[in-house]
Amino acid sequence: MNEYLLFLIVSALIYFVYRVVMSFINRMSKKRKYAVNAVNVLKILIRVVTIILYIIALVVIIKIPDEYLVSLTSISGIIIGFAATEIMSQIISGIYIISTKPFGVNDFVQLGDTEGIVLEIGMNYTVVQRIDGTLVKIPNKKILDSKVKNYTIKMKDELEKNDINEDTVEEIKKISESDEKKKKFQISSILSKQSTTNIKKLYKNFSDLILEQEITRYTFEIQVYFDEKPEIMLKKLDSICKKYESVYKYKPLYSITSFGYRATVQFIITCPDALVIVDQQEKLINDLTNVLYQEEGI
């Protein structure tokens, strides 16, 4: 009987402490205007803690037989384990992304069907600012499930991949700084000695790219009716590319990827700064539409 009395006293004490804490929280929330949600969550957590305290008191003082204890804890353990899976997997995928770095902050990326600049990589969400300026929060778990396209290339990694040593880079640097003619030819001849096809293809047109620290190589598609004479149409596209060479530092390229009822034209923009691409995208497409679909009389 003594045990039961002790248990009653202890539980009364726990209840008293619980009331005191609750009233304290109420007063604080009124004073400082915390968000209602946060206060509610805090209250629930405190309730859960008190229930756990009661159970501990029960177990310690009244000495419940082990079988009951085992069954109780097994049930509650399984429930909590299953419930936490979702959030645990969120957190773990966040850690995974931060540690493996498929993309970094400020990279121009395509995650699933969202395209934009990475503003923040957090534990739960990765924040991407789209070209139109809206912020999209993408759950890290979803990123792991969907395809990731990183338009930003770190040149250091790229050189390592293609087995180009620092000596060749130095050599290229010297050539590009000198006033010699036929710079392009010389650089490409040096690169062809390395005999890696990938890098030759990528940098066929601008070999200076190797000297940049990082570049963003963004591609997007537009669909065009090729109903005019080819000379005129292609000239229009060329003129746009030429116009934007000074903006991006490297000349944008275009290629026709499919030719059906409408032709699909792919633009490849190369620029050392991803932010420039985002800022200029709207102007570029506006110019494109204006040039391609000129209306008479306006």
């Binding site: 037989p65 079988e67 069954s71 097994s74 399984i78 429930i79």
Partner: peptide, 16 residues
């Protein structure tokens, strides 16, 4: 009493 542990294991899994 050992049956309790057994049954509760099954029931617990089902419930959870």
């Amino acid at each position: 009493q050992k049956y309790i542990a057994l049954i509760s294991g099954i029931v617990g899994t089902a419930i959870s």
